[in-house]
Amino acid sequence: MEKIPFLWSQMMKRIYYILIFTLLPLFTFAQNTGADDYFGNIGKIYVVVGVLMILFVSMIGFLIYLERKITRIEKLFDE
């Protein structure tokens, strides 16, 4: 059987998908009917947690943006 070469870019793609699908529920459960009770708990502290999560996710998003930029430059050097 032919050995499948390990591709870093495929690996990264998988990581993006994992990130997206683990973080999506965070935003979707806000639309559930019971969400108001959940977010309204303990003086609405989970709203602050949600805001911090948005901050964290956007910083990760910026990292991914830089990653892709660098990958493009690496390809330039490989040519």
Partner: peptide, 21 residues
């Protein structure tokens, strides 16, 4: 580009905050 990223984070965090206040 970083400024606009911060702007979108501001809009998103503001929207979540607004939903519950």
């Amino acid at each position: 580009s970083v400024g606009v990223l911060f702007g979108f984070v501001g809009i998103a965090t503001g929207a979540l905050w607004a939903r519950h206040t």
